[in-house]
Nucleic acid binder design. Structure first.
Lengths: 119, 119
DNA sequence: TGGTATAGTATTAAAAAAGATACTGTTTCG
DNA sequence: CGAAACAGTATCTTTTTTAATACTATACCA
């Protein structure tokens, strides 16, 4: 990728939290609890195992998520947010709030239109 | 898309500002100036006309960007941030800051490694 | 008269991301 | 003994996104 120095900062930030599933994965881990692989799967019922693995590995790579493997059978692997990963908390929070407001806004303008149409 | 109600808020927010080029487009428009199509192109030297058009149309659709066409030849079309679009400013700002810090962090740990290796 | 600027569209190709499905080995539970 | 739980891999297909390229019409300028 050729990099526009300006774009770069955004891209770096977004690369870390984008991907269809990363925001919700992070949402859950940012609650502070340690979660096992299948616990996360249950929280994200529509994700495939493959996608969950891929996204978790990327988050681990960036030191946003910590992965701890217990050498036992059946296997046990725990995922948790790192201290560094916590620094994403304000972004996710702001994003979440904006999303809520945006949905409300759309809802409102939809209702307004329906009202006019049926007037 | 099946929607997890939780994921939904994030997705809505991210849909509005993600896409390879949207953050920088918004960065420029958030400076407050009105920009013509080709002015934006010059600010984003690597974007194709098609991508610029597509992303601007999406931003227009969400009422984040305003598009004004002057019926004259050669054509003149002006783009500017809407007041609603301004509500994205804190997100972009937080994101930008995080990106800067993330790059610095990576740089630091890289330097540390190099130091150890050559010790 | 030919070149440049304007703001795009159309078409095709390539690359990236996501999804579907089947499979692994071991243990514990019924 | 058979089935389920664990945490994944491997392979293939589909979908989505981005890129490359050529093309449009008109006006202005030299």
């Amino acid at each position: 990728m050729k990099k526009n120095p300006l774009q770069c900062q955004f891209v770096v930030a977004l690369d870390s939290i984008v991907g269809k599933w990363k925001p919700i994965i992070l949402y859950h881990l940012l609650q502070g609890k340690t979660l096992r692989f299948n616990e996360l799967r249950r929280l994200l019922p529509d994700i495939t195992q493959r996608m969950l693995t891929l996204h978790l590995r990327e988050l681990e790579e960036e030191e946003i998520v910590k992965r701890v493997v217990y050498p036992q059978i059946p296997p046990k692997v725990e995922y948790s947010i790192t201290e560094y990963g916590m620094s994403l908390s304000p972004i996710l929070e702001t994003l979440h709030q904006w999303g809520v407001a945006h949905v409300e806004r759309k809802q409102l303008s939809k209702e307004k239109n329906e009202h006019i149409e049926t007037d």
